[in-house]
């Protein structure tokens, strides 16, 4: 009973906040609705018994990705009138994407009802006694180790690429060398001068 109530609560909130993500006029509100959708999707995953994925969804998407996203959107100076003017131009393209997605959903549901999905079970049978984390870890680090490492390398390359593209050496910047500062002693920096009257200082 509680499960059913919770499911409908989360499901309705996911769908409605997804809709509001597209419909709201203010981009910052859009991002916030998106975060709401992520959060409720995590709730749905908890109901499915996939608590590890749910927590990862919140930590990675809500806690890190969406924060940066929100950040960028907040800093942008967006002209809303201009945004809305482009709506008609993008309409055919948007409709095309919507149609493709709809077709995929219909196909997916059709295949689902055609018979049980055995493919995933055949590729990697899951031991029902294991907890979420152990099951995922066991698969990721044995059967799918190369795919997993390859994904890591792709991310590393993307990160290096982003740094190379944005990094530029700027002149006139005085970097701070903390180790050098810590090594500095009073006797290196200060010395007494016995200064004769009426002459300039020789340093």
């Amino acid at each position: 009973m509680i499960h059913v109530l919770a499911f409908y609560l989360f499901a309705i909130l996911v769908v409605s906040s997804g809709a509001l993500t597209i419909l709201s006029r203010n981009p910052v509100h859009s991002v916030l609705w998106l975060i709401m959708a992520f959060f409720n999707a995590a709730g749905l995953m908890v109901l499915l018994g996939a608590e590890f994925i749910a927590m990862l969804l919140v930590i990675v998407y809500v806690g890190a990705v969406a924060v940066l996203f929100l950040f960028v959107v907040m800093m942008l100076d967006i002209d809303f009138a201009e945004l809305r003017a482009g709506f008609v131009n993008y309409l055919p393209f948007g409709l095309l994407i919507a149609f493709v997605l709809l077709a995929e959903i219909v196909l997916g549901i059709g295949l689902w009802s055609a018979g049980p999905i055995e493919l995933a079970q055949r590729a990697a049978p899951v031991n029902p006694e294991l907890s979420n984390i152990q099951a995922i870890g066991g698969l990721l680090y044995t059967r799918y180790i190369f795919l997993f490492e390859a994904a890591g390398i792709v991310l590393l390359v993307a990160m290096i690429g982003a740094i190379v593209l944005t990094h530029r050496a700027r002149g006139g910047v005085r970097g701070q060398n903390v180790a050098k500062q810590n090594r500095r002693r009073p006797q290196d920096a200060v010395h007494n001068v016995n200064q004769p009257v009426g002459q300039g200082v020789e340093l």
């Binding site: 590890f52 927590m55 930590i59 907890s131 979420n132 984390i133």
Partner: peptide, 11 residues
């Protein structure tokens, strides 16, 4: 008393 308590705290 959930299995992923520490992850919950992080989240």
């Amino acid at each position: 008393n959930i299995n992923v308590g520490l992850l919950y705290i992080l989240a």
